[in-house]
């Protein structure tokens, strides 16, 4: 089992157009983003700012949980879960 990462349209240039990619062996979001970066160089700095924090206009979900309501980047990412990267600027 691995973690499925759902990739928004504007990041699919890093994933060869794929809307979902699979990541193995990441216990938390921080580790997941490290592994994602290894597989798709450049993608992490689109999601995290220079200080390594989640960018202001990016929402990250582990399953249905907005990680800003959970443990932030320390949120666990157990096998089988889906992580979604979603642009925050929508709605209203």
């Amino acid at each position: 089992m691995a973690v499925t990462v759902r990739v928004p349209t504007i990041l699919r240039t890093y994933t060869g157009g794929a809307s979902e990619v699979s990541v193995d062996g990441a216990a938390t979001l921080v580790e997941l983003l490290d592994k994602l970066e290894a597989n798709h160089p450049g993608i992490r700095t689109r999601v995290l700012d220079d200080d390594g924090k989640l960018r202001r206009f990016v929402n990250l979900y582990v399953g249905d949980e907005d990680v800003r309501f959970a443990g932030g980047l320390a949120t666990p990412t157990p096998d089988g879960v889906t992580v979604s990267i979603i642009p925050a600027v929508a709605g209203g």
């Binding site: 504007i10 202001r56 206009f57 925050a88 600027v89 929508a90």
Partner: peptide, 22 residues
């Protein structure tokens, strides 16, 4: 609105560079 990057008129709401609002 955040980084000033510009794009052609068309569909899209978030900046490809910083996710900021277009």
């Amino acid at each position: 609105r955040e980084c000033g990057a510009t794009y052609d008129l068309g569909p899209g709401n978030a900046c490809e560079q910083c996710f900021g609002p277009l």
